[in-house]
Design a binder for these strands. Structure first.
Length: 115
DNA sequence: CAGCAGGCGGCAC
DNA sequence: AGTGCCGCCTGCT
């Protein structure tokens, strides 16, 4: 039980809290896992997920609402497809975080919804 | 809105 | 101990 697996578990757990149809940024997920400023660690951990994982890795996008993969890569296409299948709409190659972001992002009271 | 710079943590050489 | 690479972020042009 080393420190790495602790962080890994924290990130996995936080990720399971992201509901379908919502997305979260690397940095926000890191904070949610109790690891502020560890956005890159999240990316690293996710890149090492087994291919058959049940975790919703595709719901993690960068702070600009874009996918952190080259637009011509199969990863990009897969993630985009998975997100769209959950009802998430892309504008160009970006997602409107104000609408779909899971936690924070809400300036006042609402829990992320816009209406 | 696009670029760029600086910062962040972790790991492989 | 130094360098460079990341599924990153923020702030400033």
């Amino acid at each position: 039980m080393n420190n790495d697996s602790i962080k890994q578990q924290a990130i996995y757990l936080a990720l399971t809290n992201i509901p379908e149809g919502r997305v979260i940024s690397y940095g926000a997920l890191a904070s949610l896992a109790g690891l502020p400023n560890r956005a890159r660690l999240v990316g690293r951990i996710l890149s090492q997920l087994p291919k058959d994982t049940h975790l919703p890795w595709h719901r993690v996008v960068n702070a600009q609402g874009k996918l952190s993969f080259a637009k011509d890569s199969p990863h990009f296409a897969l993630q985009k497809t998975l997100l769209e299948s959950e009802g998430i709409c892309f504008v160009g190659d970006k997602i409107n975080l104000r609408t779909y972001s899971y936690s924070v992002t809400s300036h006042h009271c609402d829990s992320g919804r816009l209406d």
